[in-house]
């Protein structure tokens, strides 16, 4: 390569190394190896050269071109990595800026807890059933061993529907017990979530409408021992751990014997406002299905038995989320609903 060309190459390399942007680099590349660039100029001159020089001239022009391109590529690489370096420095990043907003909807907390329990029960072979809110007196009371004028009716604070008195707003989900017995072939296990109604004064802890989940198992040879086992499993499912439980007598005409199941308060060790300082919370009324109820459902109590239980879904939701006023649950105030 001639001295001139050496100088040209040195000058090109210098420019390339000094170049700070990919764009400028392209310009330089064009000046040297573009269509009208330095190398092109050299090649254009070749036909005018003596034949003996042509070969060398072509060769050196090509060498120059290769050398420039090599330098450009190398510089391109350097520029690209310094660009990544610059990005990597994260200049201007503020770790305290808030996250972007996503638009979302929500499921009602009662729906959420109902689903969890339905799934839990379904995994244990229970079937989920539904029953009407406007219920026949027969299923709500009569078939459940609570005949007309039974004193237990008083404690139900029933909403009676207009007409000849055979319709009520169901006071519990238990009417589905006999409805199920009429429809299903034993043995079976069912749960029934749904709304219930009691005519009582509304305050922070009582509402005239609330949600319950009824459970019923009908099978042969069912005992209190099985009931205890099933209830413990249920509580494990709800609270995610084993809770000490106690069973004590409770009176519900549709079970015999009937129980109240208390669990050790999951929120304290030595008494809190949830357990009213007793360390026990009353969770589940339950019992062995009364022979009269089995009979009402067309089952022979000497052949079939079972147990039933009722879970207060509204109460469970309140316990879970620390909701202090039951009246928040029903209604369409988005300030409440959008939290779930």
């Amino acid at each position: 390569m001639s001295q001139d060309l050496e100088a040209t190459l040195a000058e090109a390399k210098q420019k390339i190394l000094a170049c700070e942007s990919a764009h400028a680099l392209k310009d330089i590349e064009r000046i040297y190896v573009g269509k009208k660039g330095v190398v092109a100029g050299l090649l254009a001159k070749i036909p005018g050269l003596p034949a003996a020089q042509r070969r060398d001239a072509g060769k050196t022009a090509n060498q120059l071109k290769q050398a420039v391109l090599q330098a450009v590529t190398a510089r391109q690489g350097e520029l690209a990595s310094s660009e990544i370096e610059a990005q990597r420095s994260g200049a201007g990043f503020d770790a305290t800026l808030p996250p972007g907003r996503t638009v979302r909807g929500s499921l009602h907390p009662i729906t959420q807890v109902t689903r969890e329990l339905e799934d839990l029960f379904q995994s244990m072979g229970y079937q989920v059933l539904d029953g009407p809110e406007v219920e026949l007196d027969y299923y709500n009371f009569e078939a459940l061993n609570i005949p007309a004028n039974h004193p237990a009716r008083d404690s139900h604070d029933t909403f009676f529907c207009e007409g000849d008195g055979h319709l009520v707003m169901r006071t519990h989900t238990s009417p589905v017990q006999v409805r199920a017995m009429e429809r299903l072939e034993p043995p079976y296990r069912i749960v029934v979530p749904g709304k219930c109604f009691r005519q009582e004064t509304t305050d922070a802890s009582h509402d005239h409408t609330f949600h319950q989940m009824e459970g019923l198992v009908v099978d042969k040879d069912i005992s209190v021992a099985h009931l205890i086992g099933a209830m413990k499993t249920l509580l494990r499912g709800i609270f995610g751990r084993d809770l000490e439980v106690r069973l004590r007598p409770g009176y519900f005409p549709f079970v015999e014997p009937g129980f109240e199941l208390d669990a050790r308060c999951p929120f304290c060790d030595s008494g809190c406002s949830v357990c009213k300082r007793t360390t026990w919370i009353e969770l589940l009324p339950c019992g062995l299905v009364h022979p009269n109820v089995l009979r009402a459902g067309g089952l022979d109590p000497d052949e079939w038995g079972g147990f039933a239980f009722g879970l207060g879904l509204s109460r469970l939701v309140m316990l879970r989320h620390g909701i202090d006023d039951v009246r928040h649950l029903l209604g369409c105030d988005l300030r409440f609903l959008e939290q779930f």
Binding site: Q122, V224, I228, G229, A230, R246, L247, P249, P257, P291
Partner: peptide, 30 residues
């Protein structure tokens, strides 16, 4: 009825003295 007497025995015997038992049955998908 007879079942009422079962309750009488159970409550004085104490339900807490009855150990839990697991139900066994053919579980079919509902």
């Amino acid at each position: 009825i007879e079942r009422d007497l079962v309750e009488e025995v159970g409550r004085i015997y104490r339900y807490g003295n009855i150990a839990e038992r697991v139900m066994t049955a053919d579980v079919r998908p509902p």
